[in-house]
Design a protein around this nucleic acid. Structure first.
Length: 255
DNA sequence: ATGGTGGATGCTCCA
């Protein structure tokens, strides 16, 4: 089972790239974030033609999540229980025995912003939700744009980023709280090249200089961590013409 | 010098 996550920053713009990537890598599941499309505008027929079922929870202009899957999904969920949030950032579904939760965690803007408080509250509610999901599903995978770089290796310059949004201690503690539930960061189960990132700012030639952060993750329950045979960032699409600012992260499971 | 770049929207917000 190959599972991937990719913040596409507008599916309208990136649709040809997503279709090309699907053809090349043939994942069983691909989770997308920042589709920025209302559900009525979702290009379902294009994905059907490529051999994928689509689940989506979108909104105009901002946010929006989707799951492309080789098999049909069931038990779709689009909200964190107890969190009344019009922003479309959550999409979960069950595929066979495997439960997938796709997240677009709030960015937070800056540590002194109201959006940062919203982010921390969102992560707190998420933790409760995922605790329940873990109790229900032995095979749970939680993927997406977490907008958190978990440790020093995940930022190009830890000193520059210390205390800043995406790398602040409360955010990293929230990430550790997810790990404490029994979710592992599959990327760190394997040796990785230094300077492995999943997002590079469009500005200041960030990608060309590898000034990036690793904020897109594939977390898995214990049973699936034991069955994980690899996890890597596919930097290639970030180098394409008119790219998303994020690269796909791909994990392989022997299930 | 609070920049710089990209996406969607529509005289600006979000990342």
């Amino acid at each position: 089972m190959k599972i991937a996550t990719w913040n596409v920053n507008s599916l309208r713009v990136r649709l040809p790239q997503v279709l090309q990537w699907l053809q090349a890598h043939k994942p069983d599941l691909l989770a997308l974030q920042e589709t920025k499309l209302e559900d009525t505008r979702f290009p379902e027929a294009d994905f059907q033609a490529a051999g994928y079922h689509a689940l989506y929870s979108g909104q105009k202009t901002y946010n929006g999540v989707a799951i492309l899957a080789r098999q049909q999904g069931s038990d779709r969920v689009t909200d964190i229980p107890g969190l009344d949030d019009p922003q479309r950032r959550v999409l979960g579904a069950t595929f066979g025995r495997l439960r997938l939760i796709n997240l677009y965690v709030p960015n937070g803007e800056a540590v002194d912003s109201p959006k940062y408080a919203y982010k921390l509250d969102w992560l707190d509610k998420l933790t409760g939700f995922l605790s329940d999901e873990l109790a229900r599903h032995e095979q749970l995978v939680v993927v997406g744009d977490f907008n958190i770089a978990p440790d020093e290796r995940d930022v190009y310059d830890p000193l520059v980023w210390e205390g800043r949004v995406l790398f602040s201690q409360p955010e990293r503690e929230a990430f550790k709280g997810l790990e404490a539930l029994g979710l592992c960061d599959t990327f760190r189960l394997f040796d990785q090249p230094d300077g492995s990132f999943s997002w590079w700012d469009y500005r200041m030639r960030g990608f060309a200089r590898n000034l990036g952060l690793r904020i897109d993750h594939v977390l898995a329950s214990r049973a699936l961590c034991d069955a994980c045979t690899g996890c890597r960032v596919d930097k290639e699409p970030r180098g394409w013409e008119r790219p998303s600012d994020h690269a796909p992260v791909v994990a392989q499971f022997e299930v």
